[in-house]
Nucleic acid binder design. Sequence first.
DNA 1: CTGAAAGCGCTAACAC
DNA 2: GTGTTAGCGCTTTCAG
Lengths: 349, 349
Amino acid sequence: MPDHTPAPPPTLADVAERAGVSRQTVSNAINNPDLLRPETLTRVQDAIQVLGYRPNRAARHLRTRASHLIGLRMSPAQEFTANAAMDRFVHALVEASREAGYHLLLFSGGPGKPETTAADLVRGYDDLLRSTAVDAFIVTDTYLGNPQTRWLTDRRAPFVAFGRPWADADATHRWVDVDGAAGVALGVEHVIERGHERVAWIGWSDESFIGADRKAGWLRAMAAHGRSVDGLSVTVPDTVDAGREASAALLDAVHPTAIACASDTLAVGVLHTLAERGLQPGRDVAVVGFDDSQVAQVVPHGLTSVRQPLEQVAVALVRALESLLARDDYDGQGVLLAPTLAVRGSTAR
Amino acid sequence: MPDHTPAPPPTLADVAERAGVSRQTVSNAINNPDLLRPETLTRVQDAIQVLGYRPNRAARHLRTRASHLIGLRMSPAQEFTANAAMDRFVHALVEASREAGYHLLLFSGGPGKPETTAADLVRGYDDLLRSTAVDAFIVTDTYLGNPQTRWLTDRRAPFVAFGRPWADADATHRWVDVDGAAGVALGVEHVIERGHERVAWIGWSDESFIGADRKAGWLRAMAAHGRSVDGLSVTVPDTVDAGREASAALLDAVHPTAIACASDTLAVGVLHTLAERGLQPGRDVAVVGFDDSQVAQVVPHGLTSVRQPLEQVAVALVRALESLLARDDYDGQGVLLAPTLAVRGSTAR
DNA sequence: CTGAAAGCGCTAACAC
DNA sequence: GTGTTAGCGCTTTCAG
């Protein structure tokens, strides 16, 4: 078995000794280089270089009360939904955080597997906060009407949300979100431009704010082109089967030439229906999904889908967090980003 | 703007004062409860409860030289490949770590976007190590023949690898892996049981150890049933198109009744070919994928696929890490876990 | 079983 | 500009 006793990393004192200065001067060389005479600075920097010195994070954290860690809660994986986006998001966040000098600390919910009580939901946050493990949080599941943002606000915990405070008109926290309505409108405009007359909508319940938002994009684009929406809209749960059945019913009842969906999951259901009926996506019926998931990319001919700019979202979140922690004045509470449309075969003619 | 100046969390001293004991006694109540007289213990615990006290991690870390953080490198997202599994893996790891009292610290590669030099590759590890930010690492991309594990070993950094040390016979580090050969054999046995005679294989280059391993499972299962493998095997890059083309060629040349693949990506390509030819997966040609990705689940009738036991992998990794950090004697260097087969429509008759 | 003293590595405040 | 002093909150000796 290998010996896992690495040589203890060099400390400030080691660098100081080597450079022939005091510990404080080394500290200044790192945190306030301007204070040093250039020649001293280079001497210290050389010593740092040679020794491969990096400040001990625990010590720095203890002294400055800043861990340079951002907490992110991983909600239990939901295998069928758009957690593909979560993966892209986490990647983007790691990258954006790194550039700002932060690392991501992942944690999960309460001890019990399924999230039940509100107390369970916030336990992870509470622990990290009380033990001063993180400087701030990035909160992602604001749509559940869950108590996290409220609780964090009351707690005066620094955090930024990915997602608008839909339900809470007097929420004061900062947020970044993607304009789902604009994204769907983009997709609907796209198929209308390609000559489609009757564009149907398969979405989620209006009780879901995100669902209502996305549907609003469809309504807006249809209205902008003077299209009627009578009987063209249907509301279902977010499953492949629901998309399959809903699209079958729509095709029988109102003969749409294009169908926009609130998710790729639903859109895949539509594709199933088309395949069953020998209809070709794009040529016969256009299909637009939402989230640009892996499925959209590998489906035959590809599925046109709204793509969230998660890289931009991550950057905006980290920027908001930085200004929050620096107590900068910050113009505006929320940032709304525009998605793009990944055009593929399902809307080709 | 909300005031983000939370009340400073209570310290050991606050608890001590409230409980009428010394700071040290409170520390003992937490770390060595047996040392306290029962009545003192409850008094201290009550005070902890009332104040909502949690030990300051930075202070504890500084003193004990244990951060209770595990470093995990997020390699740049590869949108088309099996990074769906990565998401599941991270979730499982967060959960397993939490149960062991650890959190996950995410970091990324060097400053440059695409990983280039070996120095870039290990920079993230080096920084974290020198700044004593993490207690250990979990290394995932061991298959690239990349220098990480070697470098970490030389550095005497505690780490556990997800993935066998394929290329390195005298590697001494601990690892956990999934028996890809056994997984593929499971799939091949399954279709053979269902009466398929000619089971073809679409895999990756043998230079990829993982590819060779998975192919070995096919060879083994075929041999076990006295099947010839002549002309039934083909090697391609891991893309949908490659799978589509390879399967078309195989169907023309050797008329397999079943095709097993090294990945879901390749299997989806096979499904495309079947669709183009009006063949029904399962009934006409059986298809088996690998990784049980989201695609396998939403494809029409579903794709039978080998599923890695990532939850078990995560638990085993954390367990290995614990024993490593505790310097326990540990039986065996590696753990090989058996995958399962998620049976769906693509192998139904 | 409990308390007192020391120090982990760093930086903020002040002297020189 | 540079060095000295103190202390962040905790745990590890060592006395009592």
